[in-house]
C-alpha cells in the first residue's frame, strides 16, 4: 500500500484523497482523484457543484474537514516556496489591482517569484497584444484573463491550475487561450488542471475528465475511455425496465420513446445485441447524469 502510494505520487502532479469540506448547505463529500503528470485534466460540473471549493482546497485557501491533498508528492499544506513557485494559478477574476499596468505587474512579480522570467512575460504581452499604457481597470475581461495567464506562464510553472479561465470569453479568445495551453503541455513535465463548465473546451483539449456533481466525483477517467465506454440507445419506454439497471446512467423520455445512456458499452452490447449503441460526448454524459430521470452508479 505504502509503495503504491509513493509510486502514485511521483506519477501525479495532484493527488486528492477523501477531501471533505462541509458548509451549511453544501458538502464536498470525500472526493478523490488524481491529475497525472504531463496531462490536461478537465474538471467539469455545473455551477455550484464544488469545482472552486476543490481548487481552493488544493491551494490551501480553505480549511478542510477531512482528506489529504498532495502536489508533486508533497502535502498541499506544507509546500516549499520552490514548489509554490512552480505553480501558476488563474482564477475567474484577475485578482490584480485596477490601477496597475503590465510594467507595474512585472516589477511586482519579479520580486515575488524567484524564477520570474521578464523576457518570457514580455513575449506573452506582445503575443496577447496587451496594451502597455492602459491600466487593468480599462482592460476587457479577455485581456484580464490573458494577463493572468501570461503571469502564470512567466515563472517556469510546471503545473497550471485554472479556475473557469475560459468562461465569459468570446470564442476567438477562448480558442487562442486553449492553443496556448496545448503549447504549454508539449513539455511532458507540464500539467494542467482546468476547471470549466464549458464542456466543449474540455472536449477539445483535455486528456482526462473529472466530473463533479453535487459535491461528489461521478467519474475521473481518460476522455477516450469515457467516450468509448458510454453510449446512448433508443428504445420504447416500456423496454427500459427490462434493461439491467447496472448499465443505466440516465434516461430521457420523449414522445417517441426513451433515450437511455448506458456505460460499460462492450458488456452491454454482448448482453443486448438488439440495440444499436450510439456514440456520445462528454457533454451528453454530464447532462444524462445530472438531468437524467434515473441515475444508477
Amino acid at each position: 500500500m505504502a509503495n503504491s502510494m509513493t509510486l502514485a505520487d511521483t506519477e501525479n502532479a495532484i493527488n486528492i484523497r477523501n477531501l471533505t469540506k462541509k458548509y451549511g448547505d453544501f458538502t464536498l463529500d470525500h472526493i478523490s482523484f488524481k491529475v497525472p503528470k504531463g496531462s490536461i485534466m478537465g474538471f467539469v460540473g455545473e455551477n455550484g457543484a464544488g469545482k472552486t471549493t476543490t481548487i481552493k482546497a488544493i491551494l490551501d485557501l480553505i480549511r478542510t474537514d477531512d482528506g489529504e491533498i498532495s502536489i508533486f508528492g508533497t502535502g498541499s499544506k506544507h509546500l516549499s516556496m520552490e514548489i509554490k513557485s512552480q505553480i501558476g494559478v488563474v482564477f475567474d477574476g484577475s485578482n490584480l489591482h485596477d490601477n496597475m499596468n503590465v510594467g507595474d505587474i512585472n516589477i511586482i512579480m519579479k520580486n515575488i517569484y524567484p524564477n520570474w522570467d521578464t523576457k518570457k512575460y514580455e513575449e506573452y504581452i506582445l503575443q496577447f497584444q496587451l496594451p502597455r499604457k492602459k491600466i487593468i481597470k480599462e482592460y476587457s475581461r479577455g485581456m484580464k484573463m490573458k494577463l493572468s495567464i501570461a503571469i502564470a506562464l512567466s515563472h517556469h510553472s510546471k503545473l497550471l491550475i485554472l479556475d473557469e479561465a475560459t468562461s465569459g470569453l468570446d470564442p476567438m479568445v477562448r480558442e487562442e487561450i486553449l492553443d496556448i495551453f496545448l503549447d504549454f503541455i508539449q513539455d511532458e513535465e507540464h500539467t494542467i488542471l482546468l476547471s470549466s463548465h464549458i464542456i466543449s473546451d474540455i472536449e477539445k483539449i483535455a486528456d482526462y475528465v473529472t466530473f463533479i456533481h453535487q459535491g461528489r466525483i461521478i467519474f475521473s477517467e481518460s476522455k477516450d475511455n469515457l467516450i468509448y465506454q458510454y453510449g446512448v440507445i433508443h428504445c420504447p419506454k416500456e423496454e427500459v425496465a427490462s434493461i439491467d439497471h447496472s448499465f443505466i446512467v440516465g434516461i430521457r423520455e420523449n414522445s417517441y420513446g426513451a433515450d437511455v445512456m448506458i456505460h460499460n458499452k462492450d458488456a452491454f452490447q454482448r448482453q443486448y445485441r438488439q440495440y444499436v449503441v450510439d456514440r456520445t460526448s462528454i457533454e451528453e454524459i454530464m447532462l444524462y447524469i445530472s438531468k437524467g430521470k434515473e441515475r444508477i452508479r
Binding site: L61, K84, S85, V89, F91, N95, L96, H97, I112
Partner: peptide, 11 residues
C-alpha cells in the same frame, strides 16, 4: 482586487 487569494498561490 481580491489580491490575497492570488497572493496565497505565490511563493
Amino acid at each position: 482586487a481580491k489580491w490575497d487569494v492570488f497572493a496565497q498561490t505565490c511563493p
